Amino acid sequence: APRKVEMRRDPVLGFGFVAGSEKPVVVRSVTPGGPSEGKLIPGDQIVMINDEPVSAAPRERVIDLVRSCKESILLTVIQP
């Protein structure tokens, strides 16, 4: 079942996760003590960023979407 995860941007750590460059977009790592800790799990597949589906989106679009979130971000993720 999809999970909705909302995180506030940390001034130092950002959102505190690293996503892979393949499709679908998969969470590779979560920064300890960062905003994503306890919310995202490595292996989570990101299916939506805010209200935009990203399963088939180019990597550049995913990066732009994350960067455009100055304060908070809403991710919809699934464990494949």
Rank of each mutant, 00 (worst) to 15 (best):
V5H: 04
Q45H: 13
T31K: 13
D44K: 00
D64F: 04
P2H: 15
E6M: 10
V47C: 12
I78K: 15
L40S: 01
V47H: 10
L74K: 15
S21R: 09
V27D: 01
L40P: 00
P11E: 08
R3C: 00
N50H: 08
L65C: 06
E52Y: 11
G16V: 00
K70N: 09
P53V: 13
P11N: 06
V66A: 05
P58Y: 05
K39W: 07
P35C: 03
R59G: 14
E60Y: 06
E22K: 06
V30H: 00
S21Y: 10
P2G: 14
L40R: 00
E60D: 11
V77E: 02
I41N: 15
V62R: 00
L75K: 04
D51G: 14
I49C: 05
R61W: 09
E37D: 12
M7S: 03
G38H: 11
Q79H: 12
P35I: 02
V18D: 10
K23L: 10
V27S: 00
V5L: 07
R3V: 06
I49W: 02
G33M: 07
M48P: 01
E6H: 15
S36H: 02
D10C: 07
P32C: 10
A57F: 15
R9N: 06
R28L: 12
E6N: 13
L65P: 01
L74S: 15
R67Q: 14
R9I: 07
S72Y: 07
D44L: 02
S36M: 03
E22S: 07
E6Y: 14
E71A: 08
L40F: 01
S36Q: 01
E22I: 04
I78Y: 11
R67H: 12
V30T: 09
I63R: 12
E52H: 12
P35V: 04
R3T: 04
V27E: 02
V5Q: 03
L74D: 15
G16N: 02
G16A: 03
G33F: 08
D44C: 04
Q45I: 08
P2T: 14
A19N: 04
R3S: 03
S29W: 05
R28Y: 07
S36W: 00
V27Y: 00
L74G: 15
G16R: 00
L40T: 01
V25P: 13
P35K: 03
S21G: 15
E60T: 12
L75A: 04
V27N: 01
V54W: 00
S72A: 09
G38M: 06
I78D: 13
V25A: 11
Q79C: 15
G34V: 00
I78E: 15
G16S: 01
R9G: 04
T76H: 11
R9P: 09
V18Y: 09
V26R: 11
I46C: 07
V62A: 04
C69R: 08
L65V: 08
G34R: 00
V30F: 03
P35F: 00
D51Y: 07
G14L: 02
C69I: 06
C69W: 03
G20P: 02
D10Y: 03
S29V: 07
L40A: 01
L65Q: 08
A57W: 15
M7A: 05
K70Q: 09
A1S: 05
D51E: 13
S29I: 05
G14A: 05
S29D: 12
G14T: 02
D10A: 04
K70F: 05
L74N: 12
P58R: 10
V18P: 00
L75Q: 03
I63H: 14
P42G: 05
S36K: 00
K23D: 11
I63W: 11
V25R: 04
E60C: 10
L74I: 15
Q45V: 07
I78P: 03
R59V: 11
F17D: 00
E71S: 10
L40Q: 01
P32I: 09
R9C: 06
V54P: 00
E6S: 13
D51I: 03
S68D: 11
D64P: 03
V54N: 00
L74H: 14
G16W: 00
I41R: 15
V62I: 13
R9F: 12
R8Y: 10
P80E: 06
I49F: 03
M48N: 08
V30K: 01
E6T: 14
V54M: 08
R3F: 06
P35A: 06
E22G: 12
V12G: 11
K23S: 13
P80W: 04
E6C: 10
T31H: 13
P80M: 06
C69L: 05
S36E: 01
L65R: 08
D44R: 00
V27R: 00
K23G: 13
F17Q: 01
P53N: 14
T31M: 10
E60P: 09
V54R: 00
R8N: 09
K23H: 12
I73Y: 02
C69N: 10
S55P: 12
P42F: 04
G14N: 07
A1D: 11
G38L: 05
R8L: 13
I63S: 15
S68W: 05
A57K: 10
E37K: 06
P24F: 02
D64V: 03
R59Y: 15
S36L: 01
A19V: 14
A57P: 01
A57E: 13
V18C: 11
F17A: 01
R3Y: 06
P80H: 06
P80R: 07
G38I: 02
G20H: 12
D51N: 11
M48S: 14
T31F: 07
R67E: 14
V12N: 15
E52I: 11
I49K: 01
F17C: 02
V26N: 07
R9Y: 09
S21P: 06
S55F: 07
M7R: 00
F17P: 01
R59D: 04
G38T: 07
T76A: 07
D10V: 05
P24D: 03
G14M: 04
K70H: 08
G43Q: 05
F15S: 02
R67F: 08
L65S: 06
Q79S: 15
S29P: 01
V30R: 01
G20Y: 10
V47I: 15
G20K: 09
P80S: 10
V77K: 03
V30S: 02
P42A: 12
P80D: 04
M7G: 01
A57N: 07
I73T: 06
V12M: 14
R3L: 05
R61K: 13
E37Q: 12
K70L: 04
V62G: 00
G43Y: 05
G34Q: 01
T31D: 10
Q45F: 05
P53F: 07
G33Q: 07
R61H: 13
G14Y: 02
A1W: 03
P32G: 08
